[in-house]
Design a protein around this nucleic acid. Structure first.
Lengths: 118, 118
DNA sequence: TCCTTAGTTCAACAGTTATTGAACAATTGG
DNA sequence: CCAATTGTTCAATAACTGTTGAACTAAGGA
């Protein structure tokens, strides 16, 4: 089972900007960037909202092409689509992440150590 | 008479991103960037929407700290707050503008040659 | 098999957003 | 003073957004 993602050339700038213009989603992206290469499941973000709410925001990010979600068992492993974003909008992601670092951010996400059931 | 603007340290990243996540406003910013240094009045943007609508979008941009509006006679001269944005979020504006250039953009804004009544 | 874990979907809701036309204010020029 | 120009404000509306709890699906482990 796979989830729908836009391909690289379908990623739209206003949609990406709009999606990043929400503090919760910005915090998600920031956390993903800080753990780049490590796929994370949704429950890692529970500090940022309820399970339902996270599902909503993560779907927005995925549909915008900002993240990729891969189904592994009952988990969805979430990664930043850095290469695709860099290809499409060079420098954008980096400057957003750097700017988010300078901002008075949301409460940091704590590292819930989990065991992934594959 | 002056209009309210946030000062540099009050400019918020999610608000800026949210404001730029609208095709009309993105087109306004793009046009401002292409004419940097030249202050423009609102009627320059009439291709992008009705007068009322432009007033709305330009207020959003100003309140977010993206643009500055100076009252000159019956005109409001609008400029990009590039220095402030660069200071606060280095590289962000440039990458957004570059990305907007690559996108299948809105119909270009034609140069209505006007005489500013000061 | 049954229970648990991970996450989605749904309906509902309050709040916000974009858009419009009509009316208004302020300035400039005749 | 009168008229034209520039732009704002207002009320109305339709659409979208973020958030919630309850119900659901799917997979894994005992």
């Amino acid at each position: 089972m796979t989830l729908p993602h836009p391909n690289t050339d379908q990623i739209s700038l206003p949609i990406v900007l709009g999606v990043l213009g929400d503090p919760t989603r910005l915090a998600i992206v920031r956390y993903l960037a800080s753990k780049e290469g490590v796929p994370l499941n949704c429950s890692q973000f529970l500090d940022l909202g309820s399970k339902t709410n996270l599902s909503y925001h993560l779907a927005k990010l995925r549909e915008a092409g900002v993240t990729r979600a891969e189904v592994v068992g009952t988990n969805r492993m979430i990664t930043l689509r850095r290469a695709d974003l860099d290809a499409r909008f060079p420098g954008l992601l980096d400057s957003v992440i750097a700017a988010a670092g300078a901002e008075p951010a949301l409460p940091a996400v704590g590292g819930h150590e989990i065991e992934i059931s594959a």
